Amino acid sequence: MAFDRSRRGSDPRQAAEAAFRAVTRKVPEGSGPDGKTTEGKPKLAAKAAVPGVRETVSLRLDRDVLEHFQEEGPGWQERINAALRKAAGL
């Protein structure tokens, strides 16, 4: 039995990356109703965001920074979130 590559779709990793790019691009200001910007370039997809919903992310922190937030015990992730919101001016 021969392996039939013609039945295989595109590379799953490339498909996943393309899907991710499609939903994480920002819509530029001045978009036209035809799906293009006022300059005639294709309009980028808007990122759907639900207020108050948290996302799980992987974040690399220096060990001493992590220890600082963990010193007070449980709730260290919320403290990091609060510090990041304050630093971002949110």
Score class of each variant (00 low, 15 high):
Gly52Leu: 07
Val27Arg: 12
Arg13Tyr: 10
Ser10Val: 09
Val65Met: 11
Gln70Ile: 00
Phe69Ile: 00
Gly75Pro: 03
Ser31Glu: 10
Ala16Leu: 14
Arg8Asn: 11
Leu84His: 03
Ala19Val: 02
Ala88Tyr: 07
Arg21Ser: 08
Arg8Glu: 13
Arg13Leu: 14
Ile80Ala: 03
Arg8Thr: 10
Ala49Thr: 14
Trp76Ser: 08
Trp76Phe: 14
Gly32Leu: 11
Thr24Val: 06
Lys47His: 12
Ala18Pro: 04
Lys26Asn: 08
Lys41Asn: 09
Leu66Ile: 05
Lys26Arg: 13
Arg79Thr: 05
Thr24Arg: 08
Ala22Asp: 06
Glu17Leu: 15
Phe20Lys: 12
Ala15Cys: 06
Arg7Glu: 11
Asp62Trp: 06
Arg85Tyr: 04
Val65Ser: 05
Val50Tyr: 07
Ala88Ser: 07
Ala87Phe: 01
Asn81Leu: 12
Ala87Thr: 03
Glu72Pro: 00
Glu17Thr: 14
Ala48Trp: 03
Lys36Asn: 09
Ser10Arg: 15
Glu78His: 09
Lys26Asp: 12
Asn81Cys: 10
Arg85Asp: 07
Gly30Trp: 05
Ala18Gly: 10
Gly75Phe: 02
Arg63Leu: 11
Pro33Gln: 05
Arg13Ile: 13
Ala16Cys: 05
Glu72Thr: 13
Arg63Val: 09
Leu44Lys: 09
Lys26Gly: 08
Val23Trp: 02
Lys47Ile: 01
Thr37Arg: 10
Arg8Ala: 11
Leu59Met: 14
Gly40Pro: 00
Asp11Gly: 03
Phe20Cys: 04
Thr37Ala: 03
Arg13Asp: 09
Val23Ala: 06
Thr56Gly: 07
Ala22Val: 07
Val53Thr: 11
Asn81Ala: 15
Ile80Cys: 04
Lys41Cys: 02
Gly35Glu: 01
Gly35Ala: 03
Gly32Arg: 14
Val57His: 01
Leu90Pro: 00
Asp34Asn: 14
Leu90Asp: 13
Met1Cys: 12
Lys26Ala: 15
Glu78Ala: 15
Glu55Phe: 04
Arg63Met: 04
Lys86Phe: 04
Gly89Asp: 04
Ala16Val: 14
Pro51Leu: 08
Asp34Gln: 06
Ala83Lys: 06
Glu72Gln: 15
Arg85Val: 11
Arg8Gln: 14
Ala82Cys: 00
Lys26Leu: 13
Arg25Gln: 15
Leu90Tyr: 06
Val65Phe: 04
Leu44Asp: 05
Ile80Tyr: 02
Pro74Tyr: 06
Phe20Trp: 15
Gln70Tyr: 00
Leu90Ala: 12
Asp11Thr: 04
Phe3Arg: 15
Pro33Trp: 07
Arg8Met: 13
Ser6Val: 02
Gly35Gln: 05
Glu55Asn: 08
Pro33Gly: 04
Gly9His: 08
Asp11Ile: 00
Gly9Pro: 00
Pro28Ala: 13
Phe3Cys: 03
Arg54Thr: 07
Pro51Gly: 01
Thr38Trp: 08
Arg63Gly: 05
Ser31Trp: 03
Ala15His: 03
Leu59Gly: 01
Val23Leu: 05
Ala83Trp: 11
Glu29Asp: 15
Arg63Ala: 15
Ala83Phe: 08
Thr24Cys: 13
Ala48His: 11
Thr37Glu: 02
Gln77His: 10
Phe69Ala: 04
Ala18Lys: 15
Asp34Ile: 03
Lys43Ala: 11
Arg25Val: 01
Pro51Phe: 06
Ala46Thr: 09
Lys43Phe: 00
Arg85Pro: 00
Val50Phe: 07
Pro42Gln: 07
Glu29Gln: 14
Pro28Ser: 11
Gly32Met: 10
Arg8Trp: 10
His68Gly: 03
